[in-house]
Nucleic acid binder design. Structure first.
Length: 406
DNA sequence: TCTGGGGTCCTAGGACCC
DNA sequence: TCTGGGGTCCTAGGACCC
């Protein structure tokens, strides 16, 4: 859609979905003009996957989340760059700040994409399409990376529209265009329909979005389940009512804020291991990292979950809910060790372990029940001392004794 | 050299309570 | 005798997203 009419028609489309183009690769390439004409991807070292590939590498079949080894087989001359997470975070924060100067209703989906509700910004900044163009120009100018924007009346259509706009474009899908825009698409294009669901839908005879739209909700509920059936029917008509929800700290009254529900960390071993000492040392490292983040965020959680993945990629999770929420390293680690030992692994080689704390709540709202005979100064105080030392001397300064060796 | 790491949400069964 | 319902919590697994 183009022409002066497009600006007017976009007035009915207050939702913007802004998506950076090949974000990690673009940031990595900003200061490497020598690589502009080479296929490049970020990530994918030993046992790693591709985080992001530039369009030259994509033309060769390289995709994000693909094993690095496979990407190199497809494109042996590709330049592989290590991710610079600090740079990504800096650019991401700057871009999100740019969004917030347009509207407080910014929902960051990830480092490189966000939904904006610009229904309140029109008087100052113009139509949604005009705002989208201003944002694209500013980001290109200030961050030297391109982005694409979908403009629509609903979150789900805006999301699909930005995909169609890539790379470096804008796509407005006005309400009266939604059906034509959606119904011929593959069901796998719908947000929330991944590989498994797509295969299942195909087996059941649903090939296009239109197929879902034309089926009665009751039939979809029977075929796809209580939730998924009605949900996909709604998406197939572009009729979702999901609001843009700011996940930023509560800034303005009326802006909804969702606190985190869980925090976790996991890591893949350089090579699979069956050594209990190695596994527990890694679990302690992960636990220390997670509880540190909990304390920084001022939250604590009641449920501790352990994940293990075996050499053959089968994955188990085991969890335990504690009497009260905790952010104390030793308490979480004790639960992790108990869960680990309950698995009775006998020589099974592990590829990955993970720790997650769920059921998070603000620490301020938790009343600690003192147990009879409990020491007044305990592990929680030890954690606070560690946090303080880490702030002053860096996170490497204080580590549990068992992490110092090996 | 196949297959990362950080999350959210849904389902389903069993326990338990009223 | 022959099998209530509803609600909530906990656990495990799976799908999905970026």
């Amino acid at each position: 859609m183009s022409g002066p009419d497009a600006y007017e028609r976009s007035r009915a489309c207050p939702v913007l979905h802004v998506d950076m183009d090949a974000f990690y690769a673009s940031v990595a390439l900003r200061d490497r003009p020598d690589l502009q004409d080479s296929p490049v991807f970020v990530g994918g070292g030993h046992r790693g996957v591709v985080l992001s590939a530039n369009y030259l590498a994509r033309a060769r079949g390289v995709r994000s989340a693909m094993p690095g080894s496979r990407a190199l087989r497809l494109c042996p001359e590709a330049v592989v760059l290590a991710p610079d997470h600090a740079a990504f975070a800096t650019v991401s924060a700057a871009v999100m700040e740019t969004f917030r100067q347009v509207t407080p209703l910014v929902e960051g989906v990830s480092m490189d994409e966000a939904f904006l509700d610009v229904s309140g910004a029109g008087r100052l900044l113009g139509t949604p399409l005009a705002i989208a163009e201003q944002l694209r120009a500013r980001i290109a100018d200030e961050q030297r990376i391109t982005c694409s924007v979908g403009v629509a009346a609903t979150v789900s259509v805006a999301k699909l529209a930005s995909t169609r706009a890539k790379p470096d474009g804008v796509r407005v899908v006005a309400p009266d265009e939604v059906v034509a825009f959606l119904h011929h698409r593959d069901i796998g294009d719908l947000y929330g329909v991944g590989e498994k669901t797509r295969d299942r839908l195909r087996r059941q005879g649903y090939l296009t979005v239109g197929d879902l739209a034309r089926t009665e909700v009751g039939v979809l509920r029977r075929d796809l389940g209580e939730h998924l059936g009605p949900h996909l029917h709604t998406l197939a008509w572009g009729a979702d009512r999901r609001q843009v929800r700011s996940r930023h700290a509560p800034v303005f009254a009326g802006v909804t804020h969702d606190p985190d529900k869980s925090m976790g960390a996991q890591s893949t071993f350089g090579r699979d291991t069956a050594d209990r000492a190695v596994v527990l040392r890694e679990l302690l490292r992960l636990t220390t990292s997670v509880t540190g983040r909990l304390r920084t965020a001022g939250v604590a959680g009641r449920t501790v979950a352990l994940t293990v993945r075996f050499s053959d990629f089968t994955t188990l999770t085991r969890s335990r809910t504690l009497g009260e929420a905790t952010d104390v390293t030793q308490e979480v680690f004790a639960a992790v060790v108990a869960l680990h030992d309950a698995l009775s692994l006998r020589g099974d080689r592990l590829r990955l372990v993970g720790v997650r704390v769920e059921g998070l709540q603000a620490r301020a709202g938790i009343h600690h029940q003192h147990v009879l005979g409990e020491r007044e100064v305990g592990w929680a105080e030890a954690d606070r001392a560690v946090d303080q030392a880490a702030r002053r001397f860096g996170p490497a300064a204080v580590r549990p004794a068992s992490l110092l060796g090996g």
